[in-house]
Amino acid sequence: MRRAQLLLVVLLLAGCSQRYSAPGLGDQEDPALSGNGRLLVSVVDRGGRRSLRLVERSTGRELPLPGLRQGQPHRSPSLSWTGRYLAFIRQRGTRPEAVLLDRLSGRLQPLALPNDRLPERLSLAPDGQQLAVQVLRRGQLDLELFRLPALEPDLPAGAPLP
């Protein structure tokens, strides 16, 4: 009886998580979720190329990310509330570069860090108005915060405007 109860608990717990593999994909790493978890972005290995994969979780459908073919490998993705903004790091030659994709306009823009800093990891605030960056500077990893004043806030549905 006890064993049956344990099995039930394990089955219930197993049912609480979802995995997102697909044919042809290798390792999946570095996940990030949109505000309510509707969208999942991760870095996937596609035949040796490490690129971002955005999935709508309710359907399992992969959503297009136009303009992201250049500058692989990608890493450290971060999504805003609705998933409108996607910040990540891409490789430009020998230098990593932080970039932001506005999925509403399709515009991909570099995030211009001060010259002596190289981005290592990113985290976008839920409303897209601030960005935390782990930067490599003079051989040390530092945390720096930035405002993104040019971006329209990305708020959850029904939230009051700032």
Partner: peptide
């Protein structure tokens, strides 16, 4: 080319 402006806190 300069990209999106970031204001350090």
């Amino acid at each position: 080319c300069q990209g999106l402006r970031l204001q350090p806190l």
